[in-house]
Amino acid sequence: MLTNSKIVHVHPTRLCNFECKHCYSSSGLQSKNSLELSKLLYTTAQLYEYGYRQISLSGGEPSVYPDLFEMCANLIEQKFAISLISNGWKPNVLEKLHDGKLVGFTAISFDGLEHNHDNIRQRSGSFCRAIESLQRLSSLGARTGAVLSVTNSSLEELPELVELLATTGVKKIQFHPIAQIGRAKTSRNSELNELSEEALARLILLSGVFSKMWPKIDFHCDAIFGSRLIKEKLIGANDTISPIVVTEQGEILPIAYGMNKKLGLGKVGFKLEKPIASDALMRIVELTKRDCSERVATTFFSELVRNSH
């Protein structure tokens, strides 16, 4: 299985209060597409019947989705556990979600220390506000985490950034190497180049060092040594796919945002067959696995999205 937990990644909107240079979904102020709530809930009810239990909300920026509170309340009623990834610009909204017991885990995204972060986010003060969000949530006893997009320049800042994040009480830190998807691809900005194999290998080793330094924080790196993939059984016939992704346009896709729509599993608001891996998907996964296992270190899921097109 790609993941043992049955997770649905929901992107209810591409509306965002930022326009980050590297955004994989090219979200921003002009992106108005939003999921119709009733159709989403019809689909999530079906997904619950198929064994999915966790919803991860992102976007765009979920804190600006107009129906956010109503959506969370209904998903809770459907017995899902909800986590959320935010840019941290609206700590009041995040606090309210926590106080209302609507979100069980909140992750804030970062792009390096203050200068790098504010530059990528194109918003002065965004780093300080993100840290403030973590601190405020932590003081309320909320479970928090951080998702770090790693570029060549932010890689050098990771020791200082992780040390700072550790003081805010985060329980999980995820390292996500930048991928040439969405705005990162179209901007042709050299500061957004993908990490080399060498840099990815260092990132993997670095996450191991951090685990020793902060044993109470769960570190996860989205890069993997290629040789590890050889031995992994990623997905098989009749396996239920996890994660699956619901986009702001109502597409239901396997595994990752950006996967080819030809592999789509259905549309929100319509009857959904159990999300089982298709032959086409399994072929793409195996081909990608074979290619990636030739490399010292790789971002397997980014390659999977690219190979699906």
């Binding site: 050098e156 080793l205 191991g208 060092v209 040789s227």
Partner: peptide, 30 residues
Amino acid sequence: LARRNLSEGQLSSLSEALKNAKHSVIGADI
């Protein structure tokens, strides 16, 4: 680790070790 580049030699050694290992590599750590 965050600031230095691994040399070509080090990267090749690591790559070869991981590829040629006779047993499954569960982890690599510094």
